[in-house]
Design a protein around this nucleic acid. Structure first.
Length: 506
DNA sequence: CGAGTTTGACCCGCGC
DNA sequence: GCGCGGGTCAAACTCG
């Protein structure tokens, strides 16, 4: 995860923190010139401005990190006045000086960490906002286009919460701002309750145009390709932040012959249909862990290989999830976010976004995106090896799941065996790793249904790892670890909304 | 008796 | 406009 970014990070951090041109100059100067101790002395003597010191500190940290040499960090502190006299006694009391330097070094390191985290947050917020902007623009264009705002049957496709997609796992400032007026982080549950109320509205409500808020259109949230309509222009801005996203789906393909697997959530079947082109019926489930939870899932066996179970999730839980479910929810939330962030762009852009726009390198080897479907769908395929070619660029089938089966039983998500924090690996590289382990895990999965759920959680943990620093950490590898750090279990807590996605192979 | 499942009917969007 | 297919509802049914 520690990709080579230090210099960039610092520059960006400085930019954000101190939009002062002098800072930029100083930083760039530091970049070009090798930093020597004497340089620091002279520079600090020349201009001993606070900003200057800050930037010097940053650059020296940078150098230190790059070369493993303690360059001028501590020397800087010598000139900051703290050790003014100590500077003169540099040769006399090296021990004390060394201690001082160490303290200073620690301090600078802390600052470095803070800056990095700030940069990460800013970068992430930027990406989120970019996605939201795209969504909002697309929404606006669409609204202008069809203008038939209160058409009966117009359905709400996305969860009204701003968390519907992009900010699912985030607590960035910008996200909070987006939520204000509609959802504060603290009342997510409440908002979801509102949503659930809409869900409970009987058919009479279906064709009613709700002008005083995000119309849920509730009962038909699934798969409706249309976007929500904004009825009241005065609220358009607010609603744009509330319902800017199309509803994304996350489809998980897993090889399992088990009829039922506990995924940590409780589901109630509310329907079953024969889908065209598939002899196996498709079952519809609704989450019953909390009243009004909007999360639904479809479960269907693959027509071509009945050992493969395709589970498609949609919606966000309005309640805390068990650890096993949470991990998967985190990852698929991220997947959905990634998908949504590019859903107004071309399919190619979508595919590209999976590569770099989102910090989920493994998705590129496990996931396929469908932009041709009426709703954006990302498919996490746990049934096949990390065949680099698996990443579909061609048009998928009408929906993502009946896509041709890549029936190589060789593997199940090799990313499993990748250290959670290793840098991005070329998928081709990953595809050659540990074939024997793959077979072992495949066997384990097919023989133990519960393992599949655990596997999904583990995969999601890895996938979601990059987000861990933002609070909603999927860090809980131990699913049973009591203090589930990433998931406050209080319904009213400022818990971030969860993606629907849990994992199941019923 | 409550919770979950089954299943036919209904609604809606979409393509022709 | 009509038919098809996906998704949902809700009454009937089953089960513990």
């Amino acid at each position: 995860m520690d990709k080579p970014r230090p210099e960039f990070a610092f520059l960006r951090s400085d930019d954000f923190l101190r939009p002062n041109s002098s800072v930029h100059e100083t930083v760039s100067t530091d970049q070009k010139q090798p930093i020597k101790e004497m340089d620091f002395f002279s520079r600090n003597n020349q201009h001993n401005q606070p900003n200057e010191q800050e930037s010097n500190r940053g650059s020296s940290t940078r150098t230190e990190a790059a070369a493993g040499v303690n360059t001028g960090l501590d020397l800087l502190s010598l000139n900051t006045g703290i050790q003014r006299s100590g500077n003169d006694n540099l040769n006399i009391r090296p021990k004390t000086e060394f201690d001082t330097l160490q303290v200073e070094l620690e301090r600078v390191r802390d600052e470095n960490r803070k800056l990095r985290s700030m940069l990460e947050q800013i970068t992430k917020s930027y990406g989120d906002l970019q996605g939201q902007l795209l969504m909002a623009m697309g929404e606006a264009a669409r609204l202008k286009k069809d203008d038939t705002t209160c058409k009966p049957g117009t359905r709400q496709l996305m969860d009204p919460r701003p968390s519907g997609g992009l900010d699912i796992n985030e607590a960035s400032v910008s996200d909070e701002k987006n939520q204000e007026g509609s959802v504060s982080p603290a009342n997510t549950t409440e908002v979801m309750s509102n949503e659930s109320e809409h869900h409970k509205i009987p058919s009479a409500g279906k064709k009613t145009c709700f002008g005083d808020g995000p119309d849920q259109g509730s009962t038909h949230s699934w798969g409706s390709p249309k976007s929500p309509t904004v009825l009241d222009p005065s609220k358009s801005e607010e609603q744009a932040s509330e319902v800017p996203f199309r509803k994304a789906r996350v489809s998980v393909r897993a090889r399992s012959e088990a009829p039922l697997i506990s995924d940590g959530c409780q589901w109630r079947k509310y329907g079953q249909k024969m889908a065209k082109g598939n002899p196996c019926p498709r079952a519809y489930y609704r989450c019953t862990m909390a009243a009004g939870c909007p999360v639904r899932k479809q479960v269907q066996r693959c027509a071509e290989d009945k050992t493969i179970l395709i589970t498609t999730y949609e919606g966000n839980h309005n309640h805390p999830l068990p650890p096993a479910a949470t991990a998967m929810a985190n990852s698929t939330s991220a997947a959905a976010a990634m998908l949504l962030s590019g859903s107004n762009t071309s399919k190619e852009a979508l595919v590209n976004s999976a590569g770099f726009f989102h910090p989920m390198p493994y998705l590129s080897t496990m996931a396929s995106l469908s932009a041709s479907a009426p709703f954006p769908t990302i498919t996490l395929d746990l049934t096949q090896g990390t065949n680099p070619m698996h990443f579909h660029r061609g048009p998928p089938s009408s929906t993502s799941f009946p896509s041709p089966l890549h029936a190589c039983p060789q593997l199940i998500g090799q990313p499993l065996y990748a250290p959670p924090k290793i840098p991005v690996l070329p998928s081709a590289q990953m595809g050659h790793r540990h074939p024997s382990m793959v077979e072992t895990v495949t066997a384990a999965i097919t023989s133990d249904p519960n393992f599949t759920a655990a596997l999904a959680a583990a995969i999601s943990t890895i996938i979601g790892a990059p987000r861990s620093s933002y609070g909603n950490t999927p860090n809980s590898h131990g699913e049973n670890s009591k203090p589930f750090s990433g998931m406050p279990a209080l319904p009213g807590s400022p818990q971030l909304p969860q993606s629907c996605t849990t994992f199941s192979t019923n």
